[in-house]
Design a protein around this nucleic acid. Sequence first.
DNA 1: TCGTTTTCTGACCGTATGGTCAGGGTCGAG
DNA 2: CTCGACCCTGACCATACGGTCAGAAAACGA
Lengths: 217, 217
Amino acid sequence: MTAPGRLSKRDATRRENEARILAAAEKVFAEAGFGGATMQLIADMAGLPKANLHYYFATKEELYRKVVERIFVIWLQAADRLDNAPDAATGIGGYIEAKMEMSRRHPFGSKVWASEVMHGAPVIQDYLETALRDWTEGRIAAIRRWIDEGQIARIDPRHLLYMIWATTQHYADFGHQIETLNGGRPLSDRQWAAATESVKAVILRGIGAIPARTGIP
Amino acid sequence: MTAPGRLSKRDATRRENEARILAAAEKVFAEAGFGGATMQLIADMAGLPKANLHYYFATKEELYRKVVERIFVIWLQAADRLDNAPDAATGIGGYIEAKMEMSRRHPFGSKVWASEVMHGAPVIQDYLETALRDWTEGRIAAIRRWIDEGQIARIDPRHLLYMIWATTQHYADFGHQIETLNGGRPLSDRQWAAATESVKAVILRGIGAIPARTGIP
DNA sequence: TCGTTTTCTGACCGTATGGTCAGGGTCGAG
DNA sequence: CTCGACCCTGACCATACGGTCAGAAAACGA
């Protein structure tokens, strides 16, 4: 019997191996796509024999599904910043900040998600039709309320959301292009902050949440 | 001898077959990724035997490269709208329109491009470092001029470009997600127009190129 | 300690895929 | 019409990949 609260060696190993496999898989799927990824490569990256992967995850599809599901959870979590915001500017600004942070911290996840959707969402179509749709409708209603209160201009909330998703995720999904255009160097802390501020400024001004042409004569 | 200006039967067949293969390849690469695409599937979609593909394009890599190169040309062409614009608003607005049109007309190309960049641009890295970089630097200079003339606010031109790319290409790359959130139906003509207007409105207002909160009390 | 359950893995298998090639067909020039 | 060059393709490889499995090893409970 194991002391309560403490993991048995078995459980600890299991947990660690699963985590290592999932992390390796996320990276490989992101860099090679589902078709280009191989179980052997994921195994090597996780430091485990290939057969061991199949012990934890029966098939490549199952492993991929787990990776995508994890990402979806994180994706929705960023929504917290939109909720319970005192006003439109802080709500939307905070959401942009959260999503930019996600792009920076989980670039592989973002790429896997993008790849999955680009290929017609064969694995997570049901999530799109249920959780994502519900989530989206809820935020649209919230944004519409801000519009009715006169806090922001009368833009289509749906396209505003798309714009935020597109712009923020671009820094992860097209990170390689951005890096190349940055002289081959990854964005520095300062540059990430500047990017976030730029995105926030343009969008918040664009929807009339902050005064136009701030700081400009 | 063939009449001048008119293609011999051979040349015509060659041209048509190459075009069919490239079109099929673009679609298959977009929907399955490079790794997931098979020469057999491309052949079937083009209505040709697999061996014939290898007659026109020696390897899968070569075919893929041709597909990506074609896309890159189209990508750069949309830049015309930014050049020779009388002012910032028409220049940037026109560029957004052109890119939205591209997302609508060449969704497969956009996806292949996105996939290529997401995987680290193994095929077109040199283009990114030369043609794209040059192109980008040129537009940044043009935008900076508009800023100096006081036509738009002092945003970072680089991030403005990223924002335009991200937002417009999102309608192609994430078209499936957008379609799902649109009740499973593709965007109608009217909805595409609304999307374009939304993007233009937010960005142009966001950079101070048009008055803030137009039409809002 | 012992027996049982769970975990692990090297070696193996069937299949699908990219690519090849010999041989036949078709076209165009002279 | 004839000949050479180009075009086409069914049949065929070699390989790499996802997945399996028998059996060893480790962990566990009693």
